[in-house]
Amino acid sequence: MTATTQQQTGVTMTNVEAVRTTLHAALVRDDRVLVMGEDVGARGNVFLITKGFLEEFGPQRIIDTPLAEASIVGIAIGMAMEGLRPIAEIQFADFIYPAFNQIVGEAAKVRYRSNGDYTCPLVIRTPYGGGVRGALSHSVSIEALFYHVPGLTILAPSTPADIKGLLNAAIECPDPVLFLEHKKTYRSVKGEVPGGYYTIPIGKADVKKAGTQLSVVSYGYNLHQALDAANRLEGDGISVEVIDLRSIRPMDKGTILESVRKTRKLLIVHEDNKFGGIGAEISAMVAEEAFFELDAPIRRLAGPDVPAMGYALPLEEEFMTSTEEMVDAMRELARF
């Protein structure tokens, strides 16, 4: 277990290993850090992220909570108000609704309502997203439900290196952070992770592929599909810039505008449904700030307006945007 923590030089790992090793290092580094949630102890979390933590750090720091999400978050808020650095886990994002009150009504407002007399340095981690045959209640995206809320920070990194840097930043953050991990990327995405401790600034997007003819903004599993699509189009002489949002609240206006001003075209791709989604806010911002610099209407590819993806494969596939759909949309926009 400990070997991973001491990693000082770059190694290649999956997203799930990045979450695991970063949490582990945080527990080693700072005894104010606690991990709490359902089945994070002996079972080591349902994705084995915390496997072995209980033996190494003990039940005072790796807490198998009762099955009650409102209090998982609420008790973590109290710990944070009292100076600890709890990392609360919601087993699947689909089960965060019972904690909605605690996140929106309480955590996001502790600093504000007390005018800084109390603060809430809390991290809530949760796996989200579909494409894993998770059906209605193991597949949802929740970011749009929360990104309306001032006082919250929402992060959704998609690569192992970004997960490490942003999870460290989340733990350092003096305010509540909702940390979203796309579960289809847990084992399917691998990448080089720098050694040693580092953070990535919250609110900074990352240009994952430079290009000149159109800009694509995405995050999560879609980001990796968008990169595939963009690489395919490279062969056809279409140059696509792919921006990984990474941070959903706050959002990086600077990077998006700089890219759009260069390519003059924007495609936004996210898995969460389109109506009222993250893409709506990005579109509005770009329309407000760079309307006259656009050569084509902004396009959005997003989940359909249905309550959730179904269990049957065709229902799931219909819900998820395919890489082919992205290729087509990029091609059309480039041609516009």
């Binding site: 609420g74 108000m81 600890l84 605690q102």
Partner: peptide
């Protein structure tokens, strides 16, 4: 809502 926070403080103690 605050009852959970109270418990968090007691847990910290």
């Amino acid at each position: 809502g605050h009852c959970t926070h109270a418990v968090g403080v007691a847990a910290a103690f």
